[in-house]
Design a protein around this nucleic acid. Sequence first.
DNA 1: CTGAAAGCGCTAACAC
DNA 2: GTGTTAGCGCTTTCAG
Lengths: 373, 373
Amino acid sequence: MPRRESVTTADVARAADVSKATAARVLSGRGSTSEASRRRVREAAAALGYVPNELAKAMSVGITNTIGVVSPDIANPFFAAVVRGISDRIRSRGIEIIISNTDNDQQIESRALRLLAAKQVDGIVLAPVIPGPGLVAADLSSRGLPLVLLDRRTEGLEAAPLVSLDHAATARLATNHLIALGHTRIAILTEVPELALLQPGSQGRIDRPATQRLWGYLSALAEAGIELDPRLVIGTAYHQSAAEAAVRASLSGSRATALFATNSVVTSGAFRALASLGVSIPKQLSFIGFDDQEWTTMVTPPVSVVAQPPLELGVAAADALMRRIEDPDAPIADAILPGDLLLRASTAAPDDATTAPQGALALQPGRNHKEDR
Amino acid sequence: MPRRESVTTADVARAADVSKATAARVLSGRGSTSEASRRRVREAAAALGYVPNELAKAMSVGITNTIGVVSPDIANPFFAAVVRGISDRIRSRGIEIIISNTDNDQQIESRALRLLAAKQVDGIVLAPVIPGPGLVAADLSSRGLPLVLLDRRTEGLEAAPLVSLDHAATARLATNHLIALGHTRIAILTEVPELALLQPGSQGRIDRPATQRLWGYLSALAEAGIELDPRLVIGTAYHQSAAEAAVRASLSGSRATALFATNSVVTSGAFRALASLGVSIPKQLSFIGFDDQEWTTMVTPPVSVVAQPPLELGVAAADALMRRIEDPDAPIADAILPGDLLLRASTAAPDDATTAPQGALALQPGRNHKEDR
DNA sequence: CTGAAAGCGCTAACAC
DNA sequence: GTGTTAGCGCTTTCAG
């Protein structure tokens, strides 16, 4: 029995002296009712403080007006903004969002998905844990649970549409910008473990965003006829401190004139490294990052970035999911959004003519790059 | 009728050749069952791919294992982190969160609360829209919906516990830090519209966080025997650009040696203003901000701040709500958490002896504070 | 230990 | 236009 006594359609019906059915009809707006009973039911409902029970409604109708959003971490600004975009898009329909964090843990993701399914959500937006495959997701999807993939694809979920940034094109955007400025020695900071992944879609596998971004960089270089120098590819784990260390360790020997950091976390780490190394940006080195984080506009110089529009991704994800819910048999259509190039002050033409001989970066480790303090 | 055909306890019961009741008993773990039927039911369930319907369970039990979190904006890092804290705390209990954004709009808040109530959430964590009172919230609360207030109190909701930062004490922390460094001319950037609110709790009203923070500042000055100079109280709207403009307009005439920005948004605006004015921090001016935003550690110099621990607030909110749900008659107990003082490099002793005569800030508007770019 | 049956609050035929 | 009735899937007495 319910813990809180609540007023039901039956109560309202009794008070309005009509049948449960009539009360339900005026309360739900469906079916036709007389002006008279409409008024009396409304009054009774107001007087009693009737609150409809959406659970009961969902039980009989089979629609909960609730969707699930499963992401690694809602506190991550990117996912928070995506959720915001989804939320904005579906608010008008009276749909609500249940969120779950997975911490990139396959187990937690599976549990979360099952729980959402048990709660009978109408659909799920899933940013899957990276080393897929998501068996539970595939299972639910194959049973008819509308599913939309966010940011990345996972093996076994080919039946779900993907809503994502065009990772490769966005990386190409950044790289081309540097190339257009005249850079040829462009370093990239990437979390792709091996450079062996140079062939896109190699081994029939689905590329992760990081791989796609690396590929975008490589293809931009190739198009420009710039030969790849493996020393310019700096690998790092997905951590600020790791990225910082990687940049400190690898940059000075690379003779790079520009650096492209390929996700928000390593962008922060790289900037920290450059600051502590005393690198003058963009004089000694042009720097372009990923994601429009607030700090990139607060520092000196403001950092140029390529950015994904998270709100728009959220909107697109909501639209894709709604389409899937309303017409499960429609062909699945991915939504791959272009990234933006936000030019600020951290990128400029290489300085080879003036200061550094041959455009190489000569670092003086340990020097602090600002005089104050 | 449900849109997706699903396997129910009845299906499992039939397959296991037991009654619905027995199947339900083993599936839910409640009641006693024989080892034999337990095994058969489990096998049948696994074979059929049984997924329990939490909706139906909720219908009969009256508990949805879902709570609502209503905040102005989930994309705001503070609220995102709070939600994360709540989520982490309740995950082990199998409880999920429905989020709603209000954009600080009373109407939207009301609708969201009603919808959550209709969805029969077990409780709600609410960061109420500032210019209360929340009539709907009060109504729901009085009807027995467990409610916890987050970050700020609202009139009419005295029956709900508050989980919040100790705004006054935290502002005092920041102010005392500056005082201890030797500052006496400490400017404050506040969104409190009128200085008439100097009396805490004046007119019996409930103070907003901004007011409490201002009060903390004032009381710290008073304790230290420093007389308040009204010109040091800089009012601003809750917007970066407004704060930036306010600082640019008011700071030079104030002869301040330190500036305390009392929320995250105006902290960003103030820093921008100081940077564009060419103020040397902390040489000409000590600066302390609010909230541990990432950019405060990326800029030069890193900015000292007082910060609220959002994850801990989330955990406290979750605990408070759970307590309320489990024992609605227990006395309501607020959880007021202390803030942290994070000392970085933007605060130092005033420089009056050396550079500026009488410790006054002499600005050179228009000059850029860094030489590069 | 197990089965039958009632009920949670609402919707949706189906009659009248 | 309105009332009656049968569910939605699960829990929970109440008998046996």
